[in-house]
């Protein structure tokens, strides 16, 4: 197993952990962290698999840079929403029932 492949397999693990976290965690900050873990996992699969035979691939590196920026943007928006929700309701969890009707 080359190092690139190892990174990709770890990335797969991280992605699944993060995905389960987004589904299962209650605390909103932990959910945001889980989403970031999920994204990082996908990025590791992308770069890891592309260099599984040793040589790095600039195309995937550029894609990951793009992806990181998108993830930063999404995280910032999520944090803004959570912060504002906390200010209005004092809660850091989403209510159980979806809506009253």
């Amino acid at each position: 197993m080359t190092s690139g492949l190892l990174f990709a397999c770890v990335g797969a693990g991280l992605f699944v952990m993060g995905g389960s976290g987004v589904l299962l965690l209650k605390h909103l900050l932990r959910r945001i962290l889980a989403f970031n873990l999920m994204g990082s996992g996908a990025f590791l699969v992308l770069v890891g698999m592309a260099q599984r035979h040793g040589i790095a691939d600039p195309v995937t590196q550029a894609m990951v840079l793009t992806g990181i920026v998108v993830a930063v943007a999404a995280t910032a928006l999520a944090l803004a929403l959570v912060r504002h929700l906390y200010r209005l309701s004092g809660k850091l969890e989403l209510p159980e029932a979806a809506d009253d009707d």
Partner: peptide, 28 residues
């Protein structure tokens, strides 16, 4: 790759970042 071959991705990505900023302003 970022600024020439796939510069279009980069353009949109900066758009996403600017969008996030506007979103924060709109939300807060």
């Amino acid at each position: 790759v970022l600024l020439n071959y796939r510069a279009y991705d980069t353009l949109l990505e900066i758009g996403v970042l600017l969008l996030a900023l506007m979103a924060i302003l709109a939300v807060s």
